[in-house]
Structures are given as structure tokens and as C-alpha cells.
């Protein structure tokens, strides 16, 4: 197990290094921040001084080296716009995105797994077909449009739920969270639902496919031949096996929900990392973009590792091969 984790960590480091190069070069290609950052009234000398202060007068490889040396010291650069450490800016916004993503994934599991199970058990019936039809909608409707519809229906017409901001927050371990207050939860509901819709469809389809596959297995027929109740067969014998692929995907999707909550956060004015990213891109705030992308890579690598470990809880076969 220990060796396994070490190997995985090494793989993760290689991934991180490769991504550092890609991200840095990629961000260089999107434009010159000087045009946006510096007062057009400024004279030649002031402009040169500003460029030198930001380190933009250096050739690209020099800039990359100083980026890497900063990276190794845990310094991801200083925002051109906010004149504050990029990492700090992002981390400040992270809890908001994190709690939103977490709630979205909870929605995805709580709705998707039962829906997929039902659709898998009764693929021919109306309920099964209905669930699959709904999941196609969930896949194909664009997030921004669904978000606008949610706001229109629940915030404008019905007036049940607020549509912008985090609402009242409460501090936990020195970090502000919305989920600790009722008002915060009400503010979270619509953006989390919007973020979840695509994932609900995904989990539903996975759960359905898993259920249908497991149902054909001999051990399910054997369980029935033992005279077990249908509830026992479905909720123990089928569900436990069906959850294995679902857990993998849920883990990976959690990363993508966190990293790419951009659209939802913009629509619902949710002050998370995604909104920061959009602002940084429009202002070509390179250090923040780079820091954000590096953090995303780190997030995915970590989640992959965690999924691997959680996997073994569900699948004893994995547990054995790792411990031996």
C-alpha cells in the first residue's frame, strides 16, 4: 500500500511538471498584458519601468525559470491587477467554490443513483424510459441557459430563492462558509442545482448501465435462488457492485465541477474561483491564470489518489492486491 502511494505520488509530480510547462507556454500565447495594464497616457520611461517591475522585459525562458523557482518555493507569482500573491487570491475564493461543488455532487448522487437504479431495473417501463429521456435533456441543455431559467422561475416568478451572491456566511476554522446558515443554504441552492444538472444525468446513466450489467450476473440469480427478498438483492447485491464505477466517476467529476464552475459562478454572481478566473482572463492577469490552472492540476491529481483509496472500500479485490 505504501509503495503504491509512493508510486502514485511520483506519477503525480511528473504530471504536475508537464502541466507547468504547458500552462506557462499556453498563457503566454493569449496576449500581452502590458497593453491592458498600463495607463495609455504613461510615457516611454514609465512604461519601461512598469514592464520591468512585472518582469515582462525578460525573455520567455527567463520568465519561465523564475516562475519555476517561485513554484518550488510555493510562490505562484503576484497578481498584476491586485498586486497580491496569486495563490492567496485563489485560496481566498476556494471555500465558496468548494462548498458549491460539494453540494452539487451531493445532488448528483442523491438524485442520480436512485434514478439510475430505477431506470436499470425497469428499462422497458415508462418510468425507466422517462428517466433516460430526462437525462438526455440534462446532458444537452446548456448550463448557462438552465441557470437563467432557474433564476427566472425560482427567483423572479416564484420569488422562493435568491439568485445572487453567497448570502450570510459563518466562520468555521477561520474560513467563511455559506452552508452554515439558512440564508447561505438558500443562496447555494440554485447555483448548486445548476451545477449539478449535467452531473445528475451522468451519474444516472452510469448507474443505469451498471445496474443492467450487474443484474445479468450469476451472483444476482444465485441471490434470488437463495430466497432473498427483492430489497436485499437490489440494495445489497446489486447496489454495492453497481457503485464501483459510479464512485470513480463521481470523484473525477468533483474535480471538474470545482475547476470549471466558471459559467455557473458568473451567472449567479457566486464569488468563487471560477469568477476570479474569468476576471483574470479578461484582464490578462497571467500569474492568477497560471496559479489557477496549476491548482486545478493539483486538485485532479489529489482527487485521483483519493478515488483510488476510496475504491478499495467498495471493491475488496483492489484492497487485497494492494496490501499483498
Amino acid at each position: 500500500m505504501f509503495v503504491h502511494i509512493l508510486t502514485r505520488l511520483f506519477q503525480s509530480l511528473v504530471t504536475m511538471a508537464a502541466m507547468a510547462v504547458l500552462v506557462f507556454v499556453g498563457v503566454f500565447a493569449i496576449g500581452n498584458p502590458v497593453d491592458l495594464l498600463i495607463n495609455p497616457e504613461a510615457d516611454q520611461a514609465e512604461m519601461a519601468a512598469a514592464i520591468a517591475r512585472l518582469g515582462l522585459d525578460q525573455p520567455m525562458w527567463r520568465q519561465f525559470l523564475s516562475f519555476v523557482s517561485g513554484l518550488l518555493q510555493g510562490n505562484l507569482g503576484t497578481s498584476f491587477v491586485h498586486n497580491a500573491p496569486a495563490l492567496g487570491l485563489i485560496l481566498e475564493r476556494m471555500p465558496a467554490t468548494f462548498e458549491l461543488a460539494l453540494l452539487a455532487m451531493i445532488f448528483a448522487i442523491v438524485i442520480g443513483v436512485p434514478a439510475g437504479l430505477v431506470a436499470g431495473l425497469y428499462p422497458e417501463r415508462l418510468v425507466g424510459r422517462g428517466i433516460m429521456g430526462a437525462s438526455i435533456l440534462g446532458f444537452s441543455l446548456p448550463t448557462f441557459w438552465v441557470g437563467l431559467m432557474l433564476i427566472m422561475v425560482f427567483a423572479v416568478w416564484l420569488g422562493w430563492l435568491p439568485s445572487t451572491g453567497r448570502g450570510e456566511t459563518r466562520s468555521l476554522f477561520g474560513i467563511e462558509f455559506s452552508f452554515l446558515t439558512l440564508d447561505g443554504l438558500r443562496h447555494m441552492f440554485l447555483p448548486a442545482l445548476n451545477l449539478a444538472i449535467f452531473k445528475v444525468s451522468l451519474v444516472t446513466r452510469l448507474a443505469r448501465a451498471g445496474t443492467r450489467e450487474v443484474l445479468l450476473q450469476d451472483y444476482v440469480k444465485f441471490a434470488r435462488a437463495k430466497g432473498l427478498s427483492p430489497a436485499r438483492v437490489i440494495f445489497v447485491h446489486v447496489l454495492k457492485n453497481m457503485m464501483i464505477p459510479v464512485v470513480t466517476v463521481i470523484g473525477l467529476e468533483f474535480g471538474s465541477v470545482m475547476a470549471f464552475a466558471v459559467v455557473t459562478e458568473s451567472i449567479f454572481a457566486w464569488p468563487g474561483m471560477g469568477k476570479l478566473l474569468i476576471e483574470s482572463i479578461t484582464r490578462l492577469d497571467r500569474p492568477v491564470i497560471v496559479a489557477y490552472l496549476m491548482l486545478t492540476v493539483l486538485l485532479f491529481v489529489t482527487i485521483n489518489l483519493i478515488v483510488d483509496l476510496v475504491y478499495s472500500v467498495f471493491d475488496p479485490r483492489v484492497r487485497l492486491s494492494e496490501s499483498s
Binding site: D218, A225, K226, H237
Partner: peptide, 20 residues
């Protein structure tokens, strides 16, 4: 089933649930 009439299947690799 499983009480008065029991059954044994062909492939022992497949008849026991792998996660229980």
C-alpha cells in the same frame, strides 16, 4: 427457494458476490 429447494450453479467464480 434457498430453504426447501436449493440450487448450485455452474461457475463458482461467478455465483458468489465479489463484494460481500
Amino acid at each position: 427457494r434457498g430453504n426447501r429447494i436449493a440450487m448450485i450453479f455452474q461457475d463458482p467464480m461467478m455465483t458468489l458476490n465479489p463484494v460481500l
